[in-house]
């Protein structure tokens, strides 16, 4: 099983709070901009949900 992750880049302010919760999925690149992996194993679901909780802009979604 995999999950699909979507970040609304019109909302994202690149705070990187998500990086702490799901470091395998989210990272800030050299320009301090968010990069993420759009598809991940289901075992990452809890981490991604935690990232959703801490995203100030509520920009992260799991697309079922």
């Amino acid at each position: 099983m995999t999950i699909k992750i979507d970040v609304d880049m019109t909302k994202c302010q690149h705070y990187g709070q998500c990086v702490f919760e799901a470091p395998n999925i989210f990272r800030l690149n050299n320009d301090d901009k968010l990069e993420y992996t759009a598809e991940a194993d289901d075992s990452e679901r809890a981490n991604v949900e935690a990232a959703i909780d801490v995203c100030p802009m509520q920009a992260i979604f799991i697309v079922e």
Partner: peptide, 11 residues
């Protein structure tokens, strides 16, 4: 102000 990765590095 800005430099988010640097700030995060101290967390």
């Amino acid at each position: 102000i800005g430099l988010r990765s640097t700030v995060q590095g101290y967390r």
